[in-house]
Design a protein around this nucleic acid. Structure first.
Lengths: 338, 338
DNA sequence: ACATTACGTGCAAGCCCTTGCACAAACATT
DNA sequence: AATGTTTGTGCAAGGGCTTGCACGTAATGT
């Protein structure tokens, strides 16, 4: 039998309510009693039972994390593990635990969310990815359950989210390329159904137009996913349409690898390429790849702290979103136009 | 107010005990009653409260996962995320949840373990790394709390663990090199305090001696960690001692990268190098790196299932350990000796 | 000196589910 | 017909903690 609040109460010669109040440092308890109770707790090695506590005040200090169990391209870059780490470190620093589950599709995700909510395991939920018309978001909103998403939800802008400034990130990429002497830029991204894609494309267009460079629709290609294969396919399509950009902005390192492969296939050398997410491979590819570091750990930290503020009711009005700075990492793939 | 077992009982016109028994599919309840109760549950949308259940029978169906929050080199390869995924998928498939925490050092690890145990959040604990004389292992054994470790504990061989056959893996690496015509092989590994290092070194020595190749102590270097830097240092040390192996077996891709860097510094070309863990970078380095895939997802799955068997008391006698096969991935760095 | 206001603590109900034991009814056994 | 077995349910006592309310005592005010 483990030591409970009762033995402590007995030992300190007070009631269990008093012990409970001491645990929560209730100001109505006199200092003298507090220290007596604390001594008893220490002596007995008392440790509160989280389950009982949770049951009594229906709050668990657990957060649920919904992870995609997806194809390679999501796990081959450090984004996820770093984001998870950020979430974990921030949460545990604030006394929260994280439970996670891997889902193969939207339906499974909703299932896990349902389970977390209904079985009352968690106080809030973190969504690590987001789609257009995300059913998880819809479900969570319907249940009115606290959640935060990494990435910007297309509708439901009133939800909590943390995101990069994708618009600005690409804007800067274009500026870099322009500074390096590139003029005819292509854009190759993932599915338009992801708001990241749209935001980045907007940044691309805006940066061009600010510089007075006309946007050429033939130089814009959106793939059905973020894979190398799609990047390659889109690049080939652009080339075979007869266009010949001198730089290619992509929304993911893997897409960029595909682009580089397509260029290599054609024996084209002097086209600049940029990626996103600053993957390992980009650092060792040849040429090393200029990429945007999205700071996943910081995204994770912010997601966790935002959610915790929400579930504890300490969220500041008007601070339901957080923007995390990206960092442009310049490497060989965008060296000055020769 | 959420729907509880009481409303269900009322609706189905039985006692709460009966409902509880229906939930657990107790055979003492008649089929007729069962279906009546189930109908009531469905109609009311009943979902058991995990906390209350846990409190009542002191079991949570949660597992705790202790993760290192360590320097880059541990996160730069997919080992962790893959292992976590394996653990997660296996656990959730069996109806278990995972809680994790990142620790910066052994002391923090013990702290998290203590918290998990004392606050009764979890039924068992998974250790993803292991040191010599691991205090976590000691603590868990002292508390007699169910746990499993990935990697072989040096003492405490009676603990549950899952591991690769590291001896055999390196044995095969040596065989490959020998088949490719290499004769003078060096070994560069991490700290000897890790059993992986020792097991791999044993495999190395054994394979050589089976082939009748003498083991040269000057060609063995053990670093203080698994980093590129240490790999480079050790390789330089070997070279500057005047030795000139024609192949280098390492215990980690990062070490191998360091070795390759050291060789490149000296302008040496024709030395074969092998790594471990099959990292991303190894696939894109030049030369691409021959490496041993340790199958982290499978290690994770097995760890989870072994632990679950242990906590449910369904563990088979004599099956307290599991060995996961490695897979040798041959690439350019071990091409035939020219 | 009496009424009022803190102050510190205890009572007991509640959170929701599990389970050993008891028990009534139905059936089988002599 | 009397006794013994099953079979299916219910009772009630937990599991460990929280918290609204009540209450006695001491301090304050007039």
């Amino acid at each position: 039998m483990r030591v409970t609040i009762n033995e402590v109460a007995q030992k300190a010669d007070v009631s269990t309510s008093t012990v409970s109040r001491v645990i929560h440092d209730n100001p109505r308890i006199s200092d003298e009693t507090k220290s007596r109770v604390r001594a008893a707790m220490k002596e007995l090695g008392y440790y509160p039972n989280a389950l009982a506590r949770g049951l009594a005040n229906s709050t668990t200090r657990n957060l649920g994390l919904i992870l995609p169990n997806s194809s390679e391209d999501l796990f081959l870059n450090p984004f996820f593990i770093e984001a998870i780490r950020g979430i974990g470190v921030e949460s545990q620093g604030r006394g929260y635990n994280i439970m996670f589950s891997f889902s193969n599709n939207e339906e499974e995700e909703v299932g896990f969310i349902r389970n977390y909510i209904k079985s009352r395991w968690v106080d809030g939920i973190i969504l690590l990815t987001i789609r257009e018309n995300d059913r998880c978001v819809a479900y969570l909103q319907e249940k009115n359950f606290p959640f935060v998403v990494i990435g910007r939800p297309d509708k439901a802008d009133d939800a909590l989210w943390v995101n990069n400034d994708n618009f600005h990130a690409v804007y800067e990429v274009v500026n870099l390329l322009a500074d390096r002497g590139y003029r005819s830029m292509a854009f190759i991204g993932g599915p338009e159904s992801f708001s990241v894609t749209r935001d980045r494309l907007d940044g691309f267009k805006k940066a061009l137009s600010v510089r007075g460079i006309p946007v050429n629709q033939n130089l814009i290609g959106l793939g059905s996913n973020f894979s190398e294969e799609e990047g390659r396919r889109n690049m080939k399509a652009i080339l075979s349409s007869g266009s010949r950009p001198d730089a290619v902005v992509t929304t993911d390192d893997h897409i960029a690898f595909g682009v580089l492969a397509a260029l290599a296939d054609e024996g084209i050398q002097d086209v600049a390429v940029t990626g996103f997410n600053n993957t390992m491979r980009g650092r060792y590819q040849s040429p090393t790849l200029t990429s945007v570091d999205v700071n996943p750990a910081e995204l994770g930290r912010n997601a966790a702290s935002l959610l915790i503020e929400a579930v504890t009711g300490t969220i500041g009005a008007g601070s339901r979103h957080r923007i995390v700075e990206t960092k442009l990492i310049e490497r060989e793939s965008t060296e000055c136009r020769s």
